[in-house]
Amino acid sequence: MAAEGPVQDRPEVRIDRSDVGRRVSVRRLSGFADDHRPVFRDVIGVLTSWDDGGLTVEPKAGGPVSFDERLLVAGKPVPLFPARRAPLPRTGPAELQRIAARGWPAVEREPLGEWTLRASAGFTRRANSVQALGDPGMPLDRALTTAREWYAARGLPAWVEVTTPGTPEALRAELDRLGAAYAPTLVRVAGLAPLSRLGDRAGRDRVRLARTASSDWMSLYRRVSGDPAVEEAARAVVHGGPSVWFATVHDGYGCQAEGDGTPPVLAIGRCVVDGPWACFSAVEVAPWARRRGLATAVMAVLAARAAEEGATGAYLQVEADNAGAIALYDGLGFTTSHTYHYALLPQG
């Protein structure tokens, strides 16, 4: 026995397909007891889909809950998860770098002792560099030669991620001897609870969450090129990680592009939840939509979802010369945990 009447005629159902991507509370008919009384079950989480096959809601744990639309008895949007303040996780630079690697996993990975060689068709240095943490299991000069040859075989430059502490102390001297060029990157951290409360409710209500990046989301992500191999690698990397969420703000709540071809997506962001830490990346705002608080809204909604899954700390990585991004993250309460460097090995 299903709920009677079409969804739109059920007074307790105060959600529709435009609410996909929002946090909701729903009640569904799950069966009948021995005395034939109906049994209902409730679930709170992100409404990730609603199509002809039914609805899917992702609670904070336990996997997605899917059911037929005809079983929907009640539903309504609910506020973001009320994250509680908590101290930042006690994690050193080396371990945070390892967590970051899981949150931005390369397409191809190969161990070199305790190091990891990473390649992704050239899509971002993070996914195309040696993570030089620990002992490579061979002399440093030989390890760097092995790395250079590994990347050369893939038509890629050889970047080495140098983290202090974590990277062997002698590695920097060896890189200097080889004439490596360095590019510094800041790792910024912040508490999730304050971040989840930033911005205004109207802005946060415009943000929609999804488990996959739509073509519109990818269209606003500026790091993607027109090279099919790079685009394929980009999609694999951004979808990798323990628990990945994509945030999107649509112009007109998902309306189609206007006749002039203006993209309907105004802002995007990505978050990966990994235990107590949430990684933020790919926060982009369309040039014509800046200074409206959209980046803040995206960060707040992603932070609330990460907190719902049990995370308490946020981190992100930003190039040291990106003054605009650093100023944004300063305003959101981020501080610098540590700095690491990408060292470009000269060609042999």
Rank of each mutant, 00 (worst) to 15 (best):
R10D: 09
E12Q: 13
V13A: 03
V13N: 03
R14L: 13
I15G: 05
I15Y: 01
D16P: 00
R17H: 07
D19I: 01
V20Q: 06
V20D: 02
G21Q: 06
R22F: 00
R23M: 12
V24W: 01
S25Y: 07
R27S: 08
R27V: 14
L29E: 06
L29G: 04
S30T: 15
G31W: 06
G31I: 13
F32H: 12
A33R: 14
A33P: 00
D34T: 11
D34P: 03
D34G: 09
D35N: 14
H36A: 14
V39Q: 09
R41L: 11
D42I: 01
I44K: 04
G45H: 11
L47V: 01
T48A: 07
W50I: 06
W50G: 05
D51T: 07
D51F: 10
D52R: 15
D52N: 08
G53D: 15
G54D: 09
G54P: 07
T56S: 15
P59V: 10
P59K: 08
K60L: 11
G62I: 12
P64L: 14
P64K: 13
F67I: 15
F67H: 11
D68G: 03
D68A: 14
E69F: 05
L71R: 05
V73T: 03
V73C: 02
A74R: 13
A74Q: 10
V78P: 00
V78W: 00
F81H: 15
P82S: 07
A83E: 02
R84E: 14
R85C: 06
R85G: 14
A86I: 04
A86H: 07
P87A: 10
P89E: 11
P89T: 03
T91M: 10
G92Y: 04
E95Y: 02
L96V: 04
I99H: 07
A100D: 12
P105K: 06
A106F: 03
V107H: 03
L112G: 02
G113M: 06
R118M: 12
S120K: 09
S120F: 02
S120T: 03
